[in-house]
Amino acid sequence: MGSIVLEQVTKSFGETQVIPPLDLTIEDGEFAVFVGPSGCGKSTLLRLIAGLEDTTSGRVLIDGADMTEVSPSKRGLSMVFQTYALYPHMTVRKNIAFPMRMAGMSEAEQEKRIMAAAESLNLTDYLDRKPGQLSGGQRQRVAIGRAIVRDPSAFLFDEPLSNLDAALRVGMRIEITEMHARMKTTMIYVTHDQVEAMTMADKIVVLQAGVIEQVGSPLDLYHTPRNLFVAGFIGSPKMNFIEGPEADQRGATTVGIRPEHIDVVEGPGEGIWSGTVGVAEHLGSDTFFHIHETGLAETMTVRAVGNVALRHGDAIHLRPREAEMHRFDAEGLRMS
């Protein structure tokens, strides 16, 4: 059990307010991802929930109980840090056992849980090593092992994969997602990587400068971004934004269209955009074009399915899918 509610929470460091008043509810069992650019306050928000930072004002409720003044050790949450934060003087076994030993669990039960965790995280052969003798990926597994053994009411992850190389990152991402599917414990996961957010989350919380820009499922955010920031942040490659006559024509200040919603067509014509290919990235499954001289935006990005045999300097003609066009007003807010 572990629902988490933030009520009018604020946080200031000295004179600087990092989190303006903020309300957020995370349901029991949910996988919530805080995503946003670096320095937007994701870690601070997570640390407020953990109790590692004191709130300046507002309340933190865990499972309905007011935990605002409760120390981190008594909140019943587990945390996995970006730097792993293993105890360097203890073996893997002792690291994993540590929270159970602190909770006064019996030796037999500790051993049983260590073995189960080691088994599921492929750490059985490393139990007697010190963290310094492990690779980055193994250290991260130990950190996760240490977090799961005592059945926390929720898991907090602060960019746990950002110190790993790309291949390992994808593997661990899937493992954590599967772990959530199996355990069904509330998880809050902080990342600046929108791909991680999209692939892992039940609920994404998009943050900018301490303010929640939008809360929703990955597909909500993809299909109906609430403003220009969310529209530009979610999705890869980034959405194209167009101002000027094309936008006016559709009654908006800015229109946005995702690279995958623009088709490459044979020749110019009515409602067709034309430009010159700057870079063509041929991946086999897809072709990405970075297109200049469209008169619409500096660079337009287009994703075509399969291989399209156009190269640098070729003329290219594009037909946007009208139904997939996003319209934004002068304040940058979505127009229905």
């Binding site: 953990a50 109790g51 590692l52 120390s71 981190p72 050790s73 008594k74 949450l77 587990s78 945390m79 840090f81 730097t83 934060a85 293993l86 105890y87 360097p88 003087h89 540590f98 929270p99 602190m102 909770a103 240490r146 005592r150």
Partner: peptide, 26 residues
């Protein structure tokens, strides 16, 4: 690193335990 002390707090150790189990050995 501050995170190691914080990890201890998350793992349910009290102040005295932090000093004895983490700070002094390190």
């Amino acid at each position: 690193p501050k995170e190691i002390i914080e990890a201890g707090q998350m793992d349910g150790v009290n102040t005295w335990g932090e000093v004895r189990e983490i700070l002094i050995p390190l």
